[in-house]
Write a protein that binds this DNA or RNA. Sequence first.
DNA 1: CATGAATGAGGATTCATTCAT
DNA 2: CATGAATGAATCCTCATTCAT
Lengths: 220, 220, 220, 220
Amino acid sequence: MSPKPRPRADDDALVGRRRRQLTLAAIACFSARGYHSTTIRDVAERAEVSVGLVYQYVEDKEDLLFMALQEVLDAYRRRIPAALEGLSDPLERFHACVRSYCEVNDEASDATVLAYRETKSLRPDRREIIKRLELETNAMIDACIRDCIAAGVFTAVDIEMFTHQLVMFCHGWALKAWRLRERMTVADYVARGLRLMLEPVLAPPAPTASERPRRRSSAR
Amino acid sequence: MSPKPRPRADDDALVGRRRRQLTLAAIACFSARGYHSTTIRDVAERAEVSVGLVYQYVEDKEDLLFMALQEVLDAYRRRIPAALEGLSDPLERFHACVRSYCEVNDEASDATVLAYRETKSLRPDRREIIKRLELETNAMIDACIRDCIAAGVFTAVDIEMFTHQLVMFCHGWALKAWRLRERMTVADYVARGLRLMLEPVLAPPAPTASERPRRRSSAR
Amino acid sequence: MSPKPRPRADDDALVGRRRRQLTLAAIACFSARGYHSTTIRDVAERAEVSVGLVYQYVEDKEDLLFMALQEVLDAYRRRIPAALEGLSDPLERFHACVRSYCEVNDEASDATVLAYRETKSLRPDRREIIKRLELETNAMIDACIRDCIAAGVFTAVDIEMFTHQLVMFCHGWALKAWRLRERMTVADYVARGLRLMLEPVLAPPAPTASERPRRRSSAR
Amino acid sequence: MSPKPRPRADDDALVGRRRRQLTLAAIACFSARGYHSTTIRDVAERAEVSVGLVYQYVEDKEDLLFMALQEVLDAYRRRIPAALEGLSDPLERFHACVRSYCEVNDEASDATVLAYRETKSLRPDRREIIKRLELETNAMIDACIRDCIAAGVFTAVDIEMFTHQLVMFCHGWALKAWRLRERMTVADYVARGLRLMLEPVLAPPAPTASERPRRRSSAR
DNA sequence: CATGAATGAGGATTCATTCAT
DNA sequence: CATGAATGAATCCTCATTCAT
């Protein structure tokens, strides 16, 4: 009845195990060499299985990419809530949210880059699913912001924009890792980034009195 | 004697014209279908020349990618200074800088995405060149910020971080075009983004009660 | 880790069988049409396999040529000793040696010509190997000559030169087959050639008496 | 009327000059890199003309090969008679003939090898012409031999075979140049070779006992 | 006459995918 | 279930040949 009686492999736990095994191998390969430059054989070897085996658990190569991207995006969704666990202060939660997002991007920066590089290589329908997953991650940041505003910690900022800014900031660590890694640690990155985004950039009108000395945003 | 005096074409002007023609065709094709999925024939057809012709002006396919990326990055470097032309007020120049960078990314968002997607497909030495070009663009933003600080318009912010933040913001328009385009225009994007980045996010120490002052934005 | 563990085939016997199959097909094709004019598809078709299969057992086209030439040269090394088997009389062995060398060149004259035509098409290192194989064949002739000299059947001839002469003679049958085949059989060729090389060419000083009539070496 | 009004180039002396120029360039290129590996561009560059020019004096690439081979073979036919000029003693003429043939093969060993390698690359009809040219060269040796026999200097040898043997010997210098050049000079080669071919190889019937006379060199 | 830019057919090679064992 | 040998479509690139200037 199933339209594609993929040769073998029934619903056992085996299917899940194999697919996971292949997904991880795929992420590793795709991250390192890129999707197109990676051959099925590469993935099979990394997963320590035969080529034929791959096709018993995977539709085709694109399927492997889909699984890889899903896994990557999903990792975000699992990590962030975990980091917020137990925290109740809105600002603390906000910080934790950003920090953990950056940390995930630090640990798997190749994977984040992969998502940027290869999402377009997916069929439209699958691409949509991946995008939806990203939005779900965004929603978590969004929520933290709303909480801060509600608590009066944040002014009534442009939430949509702020979320976007934060996402770009977090991804930025992975996307510009080639440049940033040699200049700071993720911790620094988060600290300096948040300070910049939260503290005023514009100098006070400074019409009357004139004090501007106070404040050291200490670059570096 | 030189084994490959490839550019089998002496005429100077022609070489320039052809390479440009091919570069544009390459940008179009690569942006649309991605580098690997684009065939030389695709590019040739788009440029309305024969396959063979391509190889008279281009070393190989990767060369075409290199030319495309150079062209894209170069467009930024040309556009921004042009936008600053005639402006002297530091803040105005800053705004113009960000605005024009976003506009370029708007007009050629595919190209920006292309740069993100395919820089890794280049040979290391060429990849370096591309990265250098990006840094040069960053330097223009960097300069605008410094001017604002010097003029007392900006507080003594973390310049490096702020530049990074702005770059991510500008690229963000292209990278998230799929989501943003349907929600706002570039002009809105710039306006809302700048407001967010320049105006204070943190609420004032709370007029009424007072305790939650001294916020430590320290992450970690 | 090894970038190209090409011979994508583990099974030992199969690898051997396939390589032999391809080698024979290659010899046939290259002999008939020449190396450059033969396409991989030609070889694949002759071997009744697919193009892709070829590359599972062969590095590249040149590899196929190398295998072909090795096989050809090796056939000499196998055939000559076999022909000497059981013979002990030096002169008889000498005859047998030349005869069998010519016979191999007769049966596979295309292959011999192939060796002459295409050895230069090999990479230097492989070319060396082929040359070494030829020298090994020469050594067998060399040995026969030495035995004849030691046995007093031959005068103390210039061994090096004689070997060379004999090799050229044997190859000559293949190289000039287009002309010789229609005028004689290999057997004739060997008989007439050896007579010429062994019997005196120069007429006796003929000072005293004068007889020169006797003898008809019967050309034709 | 002419079936192929080759674009331009009328019968002037120019045609002759150009064709010669191209022929020499072709010989140089083909000898060095082989026929198939040489591009028309290579030949054009060596001849210091444009690619287009080539096609005004030459039908196609094969035509170039034909011209080259003709020229090579023709050089033999010109050199040998020149070497015999003024000599009247049959044996001296014979020696001069062989010597000059070897010398030509020494000076242009690449060209000789070329003839062996690429004659098969010609269309059948042209191949015939080349073969005829070779036979004409052979005829000159043949004549020398006949003269020697007639003069009683040679025994009534197998002329056809002897000619063949001599031809192979002379070509042998070029064909085995890779091995011989490092061991002797052409002069040595000729001297040692002729001694071997002219002086008896078989030992005299053995002074003491007598039985091994009547050796039958009959092969087979 | 000469040039060299343009063409496009052809060939080597790769790799996703299948299927017999 | 797992394997890996076999397939062949697809793609990059070369180069003989043409033709407008």
